[in-house]
Amino acid sequence: MKTKWLIKSTGRELFNTEGVMNVTLRDIASKLQRSYGNITYYYGTKEVLINELFDDMHQELNELQEISRDQNLLSYLLKLPEVSFEITRKYVFFTVDHNELKRNFPLFFTRMNELHNNRKAQWLGILNRLLAEGYLKSDLSEGDLQYIMFLSGCVRTAYFQLMDAAAYDQRDYLQTVNALLKPYLSKQGLGLYKLYLNSEL
């Protein structure tokens, strides 16, 4: 299992720094000073390795999100960018190399999209609950909630795609993502939002 972990860890680091399409299994073997056959024994193709890294990322995200659930729903939503930041950065090639993955690994990309669509449905459910509980402005429509979700996703993606990796900053990311929600919060929601910001200072 140690060998498999080393392959995944090294592959992830190389994908992040060099780009997923610029790294081969032979590159990973060379980096580890192992034979190519030793790598393909565990991962017959690069796509198999990518799929397993994707599973690892989602497992880590799910575990962190479960830890964060034991609090007010709006506080939970505001906390998520903070707890997910390090994991997104750890597997940043999934965000940065989105188009390359789509073009070169269509089966994997279909699977990735399915999981992302499931997450979108979960987020929409959370936004609807926030609306029902009075944390969002009462005149927001279903289309407005979908727009909030779309805008948040775009900003999260753009942050990692456009920023240099050395400039990634958790606090800046947290404030950028959460500021998107502020215009849509009710008076009750704004009160909790301000309390959350003060707790982060």
Rank of each mutant, 00 (worst) to 15 (best):
S75I: 12
E66K: 08
A179Y: 13
Q33G: 05
E52L: 04
F109V: 06
I126D: 11
N99P: 09
Q65W: 11
R129P: 09
T110L: 13
I148W: 03
S84P: 08
E142S: 12
Q33T: 10
R119Y: 07
G153F: 10
N117Y: 12
R12K: 11
E66Y: 05
E114N: 05
E18K: 15
L190H: 09
R111V: 00
E82H: 14
L131D: 04
F15V: 06
T88S: 08
S30W: 12
E82C: 12
M163N: 08
R129F: 10
L180K: 09
T88H: 13
T157G: 02
D27P: 04
L180A: 07
K194Y: 11
T3I: 08
M21Y: 13
N72G: 01
G125N: 14
G134R: 00
L115S: 12
Y36T: 05
Q175E: 13
L127G: 03
F105S: 02
R129E: 14
W123P: 14
Q65V: 13
K137F: 10
S199I: 09
I50M: 03
D55Q: 09
Y41G: 06
T95D: 07
L115Y: 12
G11Q: 01
L74H: 00
R156P: 10
Y91S: 05
A158N: 08
L195Y: 14
Y91P: 02
K102G: 04
K4A: 09
K102W: 06
K90M: 03
N62T: 15
D139N: 11
M149A: 12
A121L: 15
K120T: 14
F54Q: 03
L181Q: 00
T3V: 07
H98R: 10
H116C: 15
F93W: 10
I87G: 05
K120V: 13
F105L: 01
L64K: 11
K8F: 08
L130A: 04
F85D: 02
G19C: 08
Y76S: 06
Y43V: 03
M163D: 02
Y36S: 01
K8M: 06
M1S: 15
E200T: 12
I67W: 15
K2Y: 11
P106N: 15
L64R: 12
K182L: 08
L174D: 00
Q175A: 10
Q33Y: 05
S199W: 11
T45I: 05
K187R: 14
S141Y: 06
L74N: 01
T157E: 03
G37D: 11
Q71C: 05
